[in-house]
Amino acid sequence: MDLSAKIKGIKYKPLICRDLDLFEFNDLAKALTSCASFILNINKENKVAVSWWVSAKRTRSYPYARVYDTLGFSGKKITIIPIVKDEGKDGDRDFLQWDTVSLMSLLGVYVIIAYYDEAEPSKRYGNKITNQRFNISYLKEQIKNILSYQSDALHWNLAHIDNVGKIGQKALESYDRISKKLGIALHSRQSAVKRINNLLKGKEEFINLSRTLAEKAQRRERLTVQPKENLSGTKAIITIQNYLGGFYYFTTDEVEIKGKDVYLIEGKHSKTNSLPSLEDIKDGLLKMILFTNLEDVKADGENYNPIAVLKLTVENHLNEEQLSSSQKKILKLLREEAKVNNFQVILR
């Protein structure tokens, strides 16, 4: 099923954000090695909430949960994403996708497209690197630029995309140095250069390239059931248009139409635990933020009332009585968040 919708703005009150540690601006490197999300104290007048992605791919290290934890902060929210992460020939290589930047724009989060310039050899694999670290001077410069930037996150992110070619080149040069220094083979530079050259053509090419890949991935995802999903309905593609006319493509794990209501269901499943992990739940809540702010939802030309649903399932049925006290506390807060933000929680 293909759905269309519009978002004019985001209104949402997160309740499960963890308390974020406070770091001084000069301790940014320390913050990045010790916390997935944190508050950065720039000076007496300015603080920002910062999260960072280990990889550009959203399925690694729960980046959505990291971003979610910053959303309760009232000031500017920043997320740092590597344009490319190359783990070496025996590891993965991921590139930044336009839809990732799009989602952050919709959430009002400023994106810093970054690059790694330090790493260590893996002790387990001959052609793999680990403990990759960002260029801190570059990050500090970009954070200062965001502080002085007067427009919203969407406009910053669109303008920042103009620099992806230069950032991509710096990333490849850094990986060349890392490979030479550690004597470890990385993935083909030729194929990486091809991707970076596409980015060099500018923002529109980057958008078109990533959008095509995102649409293909979206359609693949619609045909597969992930191990962390336990679903019974139909998957759907949802195309969201923002107030500037930009189009963003997402998938919903499950969709059900009952009368004039369309239920947009995000599923999180656990095979081994009595409840999906807190990171999985927060990952699902990022979709709830989108789904609870949709307007003008249509399917096959018909208008529908959207109802956002977060569905939590476990392998042999979810029994609340068997949950630990901390899990019960999470569920209580989750239900409060659902009530405040007008979405449903299903436990099975």
Rank of each mutant, 00 (worst) to 15 (best):
L3S: 07
K13V: 10
C17T: 14
D19A: 07
D19R: 08
D21Y: 07
L22M: 12
F23N: 04
F25E: 04
F25P: 02
L28G: 02
K30W: 08
I42W: 05
N43Y: 06
V48Q: 10
A49I: 05
V50L: 10
W52L: 11
S55E: 13
R58F: 09
T59Y: 13
S61I: 06
Y62P: 01
A65T: 02
A65D: 12
V67W: 01
D69H: 02
L71N: 01
F73N: 02
S74N: 15
K76S: 05
T79S: 12
I80P: 00
P82W: 04
P82H: 08
E87T: 11
E87H: 13
D90R: 07
R93G: 00
L96D: 08
Q97V: 06
Q97T: 10
T100A: 11
V101E: 11
S102F: 04
S105F: 07
L107Q: 06
L107W: 05
V111N: 11
I113K: 00
A114E: 12
A114R: 05
A114P: 12
Y115N: 01
Y116L: 04
P121K: 12
S122R: 08
N131I: 09
R133H: 14
R133D: 14
R133P: 09
N135T: 01
Y138P: 06
K140G: 08
I143Y: 08
N145K: 15
I146M: 06
L147M: 14
S148F: 10
Q150M: 03
S151Q: 15
H155S: 06
D162A: 13
K166E: 12
I167C: 07
I167H: 10
K170N: 14
S174Q: 07
Y175W: 14
R177I: 15
R177M: 14
I178K: 05
K180R: 13
K181A: 06
L182C: 12
H187R: 08
Q190Y: 13
A192Y: 05
V193M: 11
R195H: 03
I196G: 00
N198L: 06
L200N: 02
K201V: 10
E205K: 01
I207L: 14
S210A: 14
T212N: 03
Q218Y: 06
Q218I: 10
Q218C: 11
R220Y: 11
V225H: 06
K228E: 13
K228A: 06
E229K: 15
G233K: 09
A236V: 13
A236I: 13
A236M: 14
I237G: 12
Y249D: 10
T251V: 11
D253H: 11
D261S: 15
I265Q: 10
E266D: 12
G267V: 14
T272H: 09
S274A: 13
S277I: 01
G284A: 02
L286I: 09
K287F: 09
I289T: 07
T292F: 01
E295W: 04
D296I: 00
A308V: 00
K311M: 03
L318N: 07
L323E: 03
L323G: 02
S325Y: 05
Q327I: 04
Q327K: 13
K329G: 00
L331G: 04
A338D: 08
A338N: 06
K339S: 15
F343Q: 04
L347A: 12
